[in-house]
């Protein structure tokens, strides 16, 4: 199997981000919250990406922040996937009032912009990582629900699913052995997309001050801390912004490649 260049770049970059997030304490040249230099120093051999608004090393904070951002985004997308796919498959295979009920609830949730819902909910609830992940996961699960319901509905009408029902198979076999393997590729690609949205979402929330709270830091929060520097021509705020963009593009490249390899939902060995 040949991997196209774009996918290779995506895979390598995503891998680097994940590795640096996991091994942050060993890689980061300075501690996360120590003011080691002067305020807003430019990039130098000592501080590769310069220092921030109170003189902390930006590279170190990026590495530590990345681990928080990626952890929160990954957890919330796993949650949204678990919920969305479970209810989506349930709606598609059961149909009837279960399908109607779930679909209308999702319609209702999607009718209100998720950022607004998140802002309202987070301003009421205590701000900690668990709440953040739960809120983001539930809000995002509506989109996963839509996709998995559509994909599963396509597959659920295939004769082989009917044949399984006629054989007397239980719901579990039908969902996990007949439908899921055929729905995997679009769902995996969608997982990449959801992950990116989660990264953007948590960054937005942190930028607005409702996301990750100090002493923890994440990329959105770093943009917020350093945004005033932009007025004085200091690039500190651009570093975390760039990190968000590069991660989003890298994961996107991988997701694209996975989706491309799926020739069709219904046929073929699926490479």
């Amino acid at each position: 199997m040949r991997i196209p260049l774009s996918a290779l770049i995506g895979l390598v970059m995503t891998g680097l981000f994940v590795l640096s997030a996991v091994f942050a304490p060993w890689i980061a040249p300075y501690p996360i919250d120590a003011a080691v230099g002067k305020v807003w120093e430019g990039p130098s051999s000592q501080y590769w990406l310069g220092t921030d608004t109170i003189g902390r090393d930006i590279l170190s904070r990026l590495i530590y922040g990345g681990s928080v951002t990626i952890f929160v985004a990954l957890s919330s997308s796993l949650l949204s996937f678990g919920m969305g796919a479970f209810f989506g498959f349930l709606a598609a295979t059961r149909g009837g009032w279960i399908d109607t009920g779930l679909s209308r609830i999702v319609d209702l949730m999607m009718a209100v912009p998720s950022l607004i819902v998140a802002l309202v909910v987070l301003s009421v609830l205590p701000l900690n990582l668990t709440v953040l992940i739960l809120v983001m996961g539930v809000l995002d699960s509506t989109r996963v629900f839509r996709l998995s319901r559509a994909v599963a509905a396509d597959i659920a009408v295939m004769d082989y699913v009917e044949a399984a029902k006629l054989r007397g198979e239980k719901q579990g076999w039908i969902i996990f052995r007949e439908i899921l393997p055929n729905a995997m590729s679009p769902l995996v690609a969608e997982f990449g997309m959801r992950f990116i949205f989660a990264v953007l979402f948590i960054s937005t929330l942190s930028f607005l001050g409702l996301g990750i709270q100090p002493p923890l830091s994440d990329w959105g929060g770093m943009v917020r801390e350093n945004k005033d520097g932009l007025v004085y021509g200091k690039a500190a705020a651009l570093m975390p912004a760039l990190a968000i963009a590069v991660l989003a593009i890298s994961v996107n490249l991988v997701a694209d490649w996975i989706l491309q390899r799926t020739s069709s939902l219904k046929g073929g060995r699926g490479g």
């Binding site: 004769d159 082989y160 044949a163 052995r177 393997p181 055929n182 219904k266 699926g270």
Partner: peptide
Amino acid sequence: QMIYQMADTAMNPR
């Protein structure tokens, strides 16, 4: 037991 017209869609491709 039942056998279908389109053998293509009557078997799980995976």
